[in-house]
Design a protein around this nucleic acid. Structure first.
Lengths: 149, 149
DNA sequence: TATGAAAAGCCGGTAAC
DNA sequence: GTTACCGGCTTTTCATA
């Protein structure tokens, strides 16, 4: 893993549609050389996956809520159960188990407040282990990316 | 935009490497037909972009911190300035302007606590407009995606 | 020996029908 | 939605450090 690899990763995390030729042009390598590196980067897991980023506004799911969740009981079993529920919940874009005020911090994507209310009912009230939760409604998605380089 | 389009989007947001042929096989359409739809979905902006998701652990940037920021002054000018700084900050993966306790909620990706401390110094202390901020260190990235369908 | 460059065959994407 | 053409990707081979 050298500088060229990092340059490839940096370009690919912004635009995965770039052809090997275009990448090669940018970093000064032939197309096949880039292909080889890309293959290795995918195999070793440096590139986890390639995904399409959809437009929340154009698809009518443009309400985002940041939720802080405090659990009632924090045993290993209860934690794992909550994690599993969050992973499978369609509305939950992101879920972090963290230190601080809240045990879990969620990024929830819904169509409107009604759908959000239904979500809280299903996951935070009915027979759940949730002690309390705070909702921050997003007014502006200033920056949204998964870039790490 | 019909059901077939939604099916394509759902598959593409999970894996943008799927060929038109594979997509067509899944949803019962010919490859060129899928191509046509994909082109339109990209042009209309339903698909904003296609990106590579990199592995934070394999690339040594595996510390994530959720930050709540309260500003000193909340005028339009100060808000815009802060937004601009967050957009250009390499460490800031995501930035939301939201209701509730904090004015802004950030997802920050760094290598270690030292780098995080440097980040807070640069953006929250020196001549900034930040009144106070809270840091939640992520112990488990339970779920991280940008899926909206 | 390992790494990048060059050439040929193949697969997927684009455009006309 | 199908067919034909074109371009990019993969693989093999070759050169080089």
């Amino acid at each position: 893993m050298d500088d060229k690899d990092f340059e490839i990763l940096k370009l690919m995390q912004a635009n995965a549609q770039l052809t090997a030729e275009a990448l090669g042009y940018e970093i000064g390598l032939s197309a096949p050389a880039v292909q080889k590196r890309l293959k290795k980067l995918r195999e070793t897991g440096a590139i986890e996956k390639e995904i399409a980023v959809l437009s929340p506004t154009k698809l009518g799911r443009d309400m985002t809520v940041i939720v802080g969740v405090v659990l009632e009981r924090e045993s290993r079993m209860h934690l794992d159960l909550f994690k599993r529920r969050m992973r499978q919940a369609r509305e939950v874009q992101q879920c972090y188990y963290a230190t601080g005020e809240a045990d879990f911090i969620l990024v929830v994507a819904v169509s409107d407040i009604k759908e959000y209310e239904a979500f809280t009912q299903e996951y935070f009230f009915d027979e759940s282990n949730v002690s309390r939760f705070t909702s921050s409604v997003v007014m502006d998605r200033v920056k949204v990316s998964l870039d790490i380089l």
